[in-house]
Amino acid sequence: MFRVEIAKTDKDRESAFSIRKKVFVEEQGVPLNLELDEHDETATHFVIYTTDTPIGAGRLRETDAGTGKVERVCVLPEFRGRYLGNLIMNSLEEFAKSNELKKIILNSQSYAVPFYEKLGFVITSPEFMDADIPHRAMEKILN
């Protein structure tokens, strides 16, 4: 059984950071100083658990009035293909709606654009590089 929880304690946040380090730093080669940034202090962090083991993470932060930015969405390799990306994105979106955000934006790695399109996001930029990885900006208007 999988569940998504909002990180409420330092231990919860460290679980999110640990997952992110494994996926983005170790697997994808993103420098640690780019992966963990100044927004980690103020963002709302989400962690996917199976029993008590953290296996995925993501964060949401408000960038402008009414706009939330989804960032650092990831799932450990051995748990991919189980719709856990959908699970965490649905949790992030519900949180955004409950906080009266009108739009959510994100920068998707280019290979993941189809995943976000299936969730209702649309591309809003040409391809650009971030941490030497191709990305596209995307957004979704919330009802």
Rank of each mutant, 00 (worst) to 15 (best):
K69C: 03
D40M: 03
N33T: 12
V47L: 12
R72W: 01
K69W: 14
G66C: 10
T42Q: 10
T50V: 11
V73S: 04
T63Q: 06
I55D: 01
I48L: 09
R59K: 14
D40R: 00
G68H: 04
T51W: 01
E62L: 09
E62K: 14
V30H: 02
P54N: 11
D52I: 13
P31E: 07
P31A: 09
T53I: 14
P54K: 14
G58D: 03
G58E: 02
T67G: 05
D40L: 02
C74K: 01
P31T: 11
H39N: 15
H39W: 08
G58I: 07
K69V: 05
T50K: 15
G58P: 07
T51H: 07
D52A: 13
E38A: 12
C74W: 04
E38I: 10
T42C: 14
E41H: 07
F46S: 07
T51D: 08
V47D: 04
E62R: 15
D64C: 05
V73T: 02
E35F: 02
G68R: 02
L60G: 03
Q28Y: 06
Q28T: 11
A65K: 10
A65C: 10
H39Y: 14
T42R: 15
A65V: 09
V30C: 10
H39E: 13
V70H: 05
D40Y: 00
F46E: 01
E38S: 15
T63V: 12
D37W: 00
Q28L: 15
Y49P: 13
D40K: 00
L60A: 00
A65S: 09
V73Q: 02
A65E: 11
T50D: 05
L32V: 13
A43K: 00
T50M: 10
D52P: 12
T44Y: 04
A57H: 02
E41Q: 10
V30S: 05
L34D: 15
G66F: 01
A65R: 11
T44Q: 08
G58F: 00
D40F: 00
T42P: 03
Q28G: 15
H39T: 13
H45G: 06
V47F: 07
D64F: 03
A57F: 01
G29W: 03
T51M: 11
I48M: 03
V70C: 13
E38L: 11
V73F: 04
L60Y: 00
G58M: 08
L36T: 08
Q28P: 14
R72E: 01
V70M: 09
V47Y: 06
E62T: 09
G66L: 05
F46T: 03
V70R: 06
N33S: 13
R61C: 05
G56P: 12
T63Y: 04
D37H: 00
P54L: 11
A65H: 07
E35T: 10
R72C: 01
N33F: 02
A43Q: 03
T53P: 13
N33M: 05
H45I: 05
H39G: 06
R59Q: 06
R72Y: 00
V47N: 11
L34W: 02
E41F: 05
I55L: 11
K69T: 04
G29V: 04
I55R: 08
V70K: 05
T42I: 15
